[in-house]
Write a protein that binds this DNA or RNA. Sequence first.
DNA 1: AGTACCACCTGACGGC
DNA 2: TGCCGTCAGGTGGTAC
Length: 264
Amino acid sequence: MPELPDVETFRRYVNSTSLHKTINNVKVKSAKVLDGTSAKNLSKTLQGEKFTNTRRHGKHLFLQISNGQWLMMHFGMTGSLHYFKDMDDDPKHDRLLISFENGYHLAYDCQRLLGKISLTEDIDSFITDKNLGDDALAISWDSFKGSLKKKRGSIKSALMDQKTLAGVGNIYVDEILFQVGIHPKTAVNSINEAYLEEVFESMRDVLSKAIDVQADPSEFPPSFMTPHRRSDQQCPNGDEKLKTVKISGRTTYFCPKHQKKLKK
DNA sequence: AGTACCACCTGACGGC
DNA sequence: TGCCGTCAGGTGGTAC
């Protein structure tokens, strides 16, 4: 689930469920997701505090703690958040369980353990340390253009590179390129400025439309390709079959009829 | 600075 | 039923 729209959805979920409530218990179920901190230290840091605010940068979510620090969550391929009261509703792969004094719990669930949780004093230095590019929904057209001009290789790899811009992953990059009708293997440096601006607009459009429906593909507009992302499925714009190709090791779906390497 | 692979992990699915 | 290869919305490291 966890690309920019999913993480933004988690952020709003935390806002509507978990702010301003005293934390009275913290259980680390798997220390493997912890990065640069220990279960003991994390518990000590959160115990008795509240979450006061949230921020998101790309695929990283930050929960502000009332002591001024930030709890960083990254969701890997399979991470998600669940707020519930009855422990019967505790998700199967919960790795961190935060309990509030109102009897509710916030669980960080992550089946494949590829996610990360850490503590940080300062979001800006976290972003600098990780070398992350600007957030894909916050970046200006000028910065986007500037960052992509330095890139070589395919447009797909460039958009997915978190150092270039943060938040776009394998699913949404395919959707963005499908919407502009550009072949994912197109060399970035062969795209002229006007067309690159269309890519930029498509990125903003796809990401915000996904956020509008809580990143639920079953609610995507009918013109979106993502819900057809299965082998042998047809393009939403016709009876053409979608095809797959590997780009930087990731399975890529595209429509051979509607996505061309060069714009006519 | 690219790509190509491997690794980290668990689990679902299809073929035999 | 069971075993096995393959694949999965991410990232980081390596070698070339």
